[in-house]
């Protein structure tokens, strides 16, 4: 992993900005800080303004684990391209059967309600096409995590389990993931390359694509990540968006 604001990182970013490039961002932990209650995770006014400015100059997409309805509330009309539920919602030409996912999520929710009754600090978020089990507010995070994972192992049909920051995502097996979503968006818009910024394990679906035409950026350095570049902290997102806008203004 290389630091994005190094000479190499900036030169690479420039080369991507010169082309027909899609700028895609995850939401929680990337555009907004991670907070205890997911509903309180909001972008700063500066990030919001910068993102709007970038959106007026270049194709921008939000690819998040949140439900599409949630994203629509957050972005109102500012960003047109939004993919929710880790790639399940909002995809152009989506061939994934939503009915099967709805069915599976309902079953999991009922079963988890039985298996994790009134557990303080554990919160099940129903995102319609997937579930997110949060344990950020739990006093004993380690045991909460292993408890949730145990329960997830007993679910039918077996979900795809993706670990996040104090959250365990349960996603219908075979559903499109963030990597598929990004590639589909590029294809749909006729864009030859993309810059993707994310912070979580769910973003590894994009980072792990063996596609050199996607510049992958992780918020926070992590040696095991497949992302090529990293930002030191979430607040660096403003500097990154500013830089992208500057490069595009300079040359185009």
């Amino acid at each position: 992993m290389k630091f994005l604001f190094s000479a190499t990182g900036i030169r690479t970013l420039e080369a991507f900005c010169f082309s027909k490039c899609l700028f895609a961002f995850d939401y929680d932990g990337t555009l907004a800080k991670i907070v205890k209650a997911p509903n309180d995770a909001l972008m700063t006014k500066t990030t919001e303004n910068l993102l709007e400015e970038l959106n007026s100059k270049a194709p921008v997409a939000i690819i998040s684990g949140r439900s599409l309805n949630d994203l629509k509330k957050l972005f109102k009309h500012s960003i047109k391209t939004m993919i929710g539920n880790h790639g399940i919602e909002g995809l152009p030409n989506n061939r994934f059967s939503g009915d099967a996912a709805l069915d599976a999520v309902l079953k999991w929710k009922k079963k988890l309600a039985k298996l994790l009754p009134d557990n303080p600090g554990i919160q099940i978020e129903d995102k319609v096409f997937s579930l997110a089990v949060h344990y950020r507010c739990s006093r004993e995070k380690k045991s909460a995590k292993s408890r949730i994972l145990d329960c997830a192992g007993n679910l039918e049909p077996p979900p795809r389990v993706i670990l996040g920051k104090c959250v365990i995502n349960l996603i219908p097996a075979g559903a499109p993931h963030k990597g598929v979503a990004l590639m589909e968006l590029m294809l749909d818009r006729g864009l030859t390359c993309a810059v993707y910024v994310g912070d979580d394990d769910t973003d590894e679906d994009v980072f792990g694509l063996s596609e050199l035409r996607i510049m992958t950026v992780r918020v926070g350095m992590k040696a095991a990540s497949r992302a090529r570049f990293y930002l030191k902290r979430q607040t660096d997102i403003n500097r990154l968006i500013k830089l992208i806008i500057k490069i595009r203004n300079d040359i185009l």
């Binding site: 992993m1 290389k2 190499t8 030169r11 690479t12 420039e14 080369a15 010169f18 050199l212 497949r226 090529r228 570049f229 040359i251």
Partner: peptide
């Protein structure tokens, strides 16, 4: 243009246009 070793696999070289290259084309 410049050749940059891939951040994940230094054996792979990626080819990128430089600012000078883009200005030249324009």
């Amino acid at each position: 243009l410049f050749l940059e070793p891939d951040a994940l696999d230094a054996r792979k070289k990626t080819i990128l246009i430089s600012r000078e290259g883009k200005t030249k084309l324009l």
